[in-house]
C-alpha cells in the first residue's frame, strides 16, 4: 500500500504539491489524472525517491521510501521521457536490470519482446518512439516489482498494442500481486486500464474513486414539474449538480438507480428522463461540486 501523508513539494518557492493526502491500495491499478504541470510527474518522482519531500511522508508498506535501496528494488518507475544507455540493446538493458534488481527475469523479457515483435539485439536508438515506449514497459514488467509507476506511459498507444500490454499487465498482477500507478492528462486514456481514478489538482488529490462504483452510482436526470422547483426541493437526494433552465431541472445524483427513481417519482414529475453520463462528465461534475473548475 502506498500512503501519502501531507506531502508538500516546492520548486523555487512555488508549491507544486501542498498537503497532498492519498492512499493507493494494494493490487489495484490507480490512474492519476491531472493537467500538464499539475504535479503528477513530481509525485511519481517523490514516490520513486528521485526527489525528496519538503514536508510530509510517503510510505510503501509502512516503510519510508526515501533513499531506501531495498524498498526501491520493489519499485519500477517509467518516466515520460525515456532514457536508455547509448547504443544498448534490449538484451543489454536486461542484463543491466538483472544486475540491480534480483527479481528481474530475462526469459520473461524475451518472451514479451517476442510477442510485441521487438528485436532483442538491435540498438534501442534505432527504435521508433512507440517501440521505445513498449520496450520500457516490458523492461519494467519483467522486473516483477511490487509497485509500478507509469508516467503518461499509455498516452497515445495504439489499440492493438494496448490490448497486448493490458494482457501482460493482467498476468503480472495475477502472478505477482503488484500495484500500479499510472498518470495521464487525459481520462479517456485510462478509463479502460484502471480500476481507481484520482484527480490531482492544485497540489492535492481532490477526488478519487473506484471506477466501477462511480459508473454504478451516478445518474443524470432531467425533470420537468408543474410548479417551479429549487434545489432545496431535492434535499433528500445526494446531489452532485443541480441546474435549473427554463422549465427543466437537470440533476446529477449519487445513489442506486432504483432508489433515485422511487424518490423522484414521489415528486410527481411531468417529465423524467435519464440522460447518458460519461465517466469524464462524472468527474467534471464531481470536481465542480468540490468547488473547482476542472480544466483538461
Amino acid at each position: 500500500m502506498i500512503k501519502l501523508q501531507n506531502v508538500s513539494k516546492n520548486f523555487a518557492k512555488t508549491f507544486i504539491l501542498k498537503d497532498l493526502n492519498g492512499t493507493i491500495k494494494d493490487e489495484c491499478i490507480y490512474g492519476l489524472i491531472g493537467a500538464n504541470g499539475a504535479g503528477k510527474s513530481t509525485l511519481l518522482r517523490l514516490i520513486s525517491s528521485i526527489y525528496s519531500l519538503d514536508e510530509g511522508s510517503i510510505t510503501l508498506d509502512k516503510e519510508d521510501v526515501y533513499d531506501n535501496p531495498s524498498l526501491k528494488q520493489k519499485i519500477v518507475f517509467v518516466p515520460d521521457e525515456l532514457y536508455f544507455y547509448p547504443n544498448y540493446t534490449l538484451k543489454d538493458m536486461a542484463n543491466f536490470r538483472k544486475a540491480l534488481y534480483p527479481s528481474f527475469s530475462t526469459t520473461d523479457l524475451e518472451s514479451m519482446a517476442k510477442i510485441l515483435k521487438l528485436p532483442l539485439d538491435r540498438s534501442l536508438e534505432t527504435f521508433s518512439k512507440g517501440e521505445r515506449r513498449q520496450s520500457a514497459i516490458i523492461l519494467a514488467l519483467a522486473t516483477h516489482a511490487k509497485y509500478y509507476l507509469f508516467d503518461e506511459t499509455f498516452d497515445g498507444i495504439d489499440p492493438v498494442v494496448r490490448k497486448t500490454i493490458k494482457k501482460m499487465m493482467a498476468r503480472e498482477m495475477c502472478d505477482y500481486h503488484s500495484t500500479m500507478l499510472i498518470t495521464s492528462h487525459n481520462l479517456r486514456e485510462l478509463e479502460d486500464i484502471c480500476d481507481y481514478l484520482g484527480v490531482l489538482y492544485e497540489g492535492k488529490i481532490l477526488f478519487e474513486s473506484e471506477i466501477d462504483e462511480l459508473k454504478a452510482t451516478r445518474y443524470k436526470v432531467q425533470l420537468s414539474f408543474n410548479e417551479p422547483k429549487t434545489k432545496k426541493d431535492f434535499a433528500n437526494l445526494d446531489i452532485v449538480s443541480y441546474e435549473h433552465k427554463g422549465k427543466i431541472d437537470t440533476l446529477v445524483l449519487r445513489g442506486q438507480e432504483k432508489d433515485i427513481t422511487k424518490t423522484l417519482e414521489k415528486m410527481h414529475p411531468v417529465l423524467m428522463e435519464y440522460v447518458p453520463l460519461t465517466l469524464e462528465e462524472i468527474f467534471i461534475y464531481e470536481m465542480e461540486d468540490l468547488g473547482y473548475v476542472f480544466m483538461e
Binding site: R45, S48, S49, I50, D67, P69, S70, L71, K72, Q73, I75, V76, F77, P79, E81, L82, Y83, L100, Y101
Partner: peptide
C-alpha cells in the same frame, strides 16, 4: 546534467551515497 538521466539513475535501487 540531464533530466532523463537523473530519473534513470536516481530511480535505481541504490543509496545516493553509494
Amino acid at each position: 546534467y540531464k533530466k532523463e538521466t537523473i530519473d534513470f539513475t536516481l530511480s535505481l535501487p541504490l543509496k545516493k551515497r553509494t
